[in-house]
Nucleic acid binder design. Structure first.
Lengths: 108, 108
DNA sequence: ACTTACGGTAAGTGACGGCTTACGCAGAGC
DNA sequence: GCTCTGCGTAAGCCGTCACTTACCGTAAGT
């Protein structure tokens, strides 16, 4: 559950992988097409795509001998939920602290 | 701008650092207090806190001889904006592709 | 002033991760 | 069937990064 979100964050914690995702904004691309816009070799891109796919940040479909990759929103949604949960708990803590403070005020 | 968001994502791309953040949910804690709940040494926590602070994911204030760290929402907000931007561009691309498809349909 | 608690930093080590080259396999076209 | 293109994987190298121990500065208590 939250372990999946951590996997996504690990996947997003690499500049090259983020560059791959950026390159997928707009249209789906083949592996060589993705690698053409980057400074790393095509096999390196393949390895990153494997990780991104496991994190559900990309999907792939076969198109003849080529493999076309596209963005998968599920990974991004997982990060959003993780973020929301974090923020909610932070706010709850602030609220609780404020109430504790108010109770202390009342005593004095 | 977007470079800052990348810095935050890099900071979030480590399990120990995420554990530190989780430990800061709820209440602010001192360094030794944070390290007490983790499996790494206190100096290791200090090094991570330095990175988290640079990414504006935590803030620190001196309290006597102790240093109390708390969550900083700015880093999380930056990730949220990064996510939103990504999602918007993806949706825009989908919309554009759909319109192109519709135009092609009209011709036939 | 001495001691004690707390935390940042230096130095060194080990491992993990990202990259490259080389290879093998599948599908499309001649 | 042969070739050519596209992609994944294996093997290996190298850099980086997270971690440890040791040390030093600082603030508070006695």
């Amino acid at each position: 559950m939250t372990a999946y979100a951590e996997q996504v964050l690990d996947a997003l914690g690499d500049p090259t992988r983020r560059a791959v995702l950026k390159r997928l904004r707009g249209r789906a691309r083949s592996v060589t097409d993705i690698a053409a816009g980057l400074e790393v070799s095509r096999p390196a891109v393949s390895q990153h795509l494997k990780i991104l796919k496991a994190a559900r940040l990309v999907t792939d479909r076969a198109e003849g001998t080529r493999r076309v990759y596209a963005l998968d929103t599920r990974g991004l949604e997982a990060v959003r939920r993780w973020l929301d949960g974090f923020w909610d708990e932070t706010l709850a803590a602030f609220k609780e602290a404020a109430e504790r403070e108010a109770a202390k005020e009342r005593k004095t």
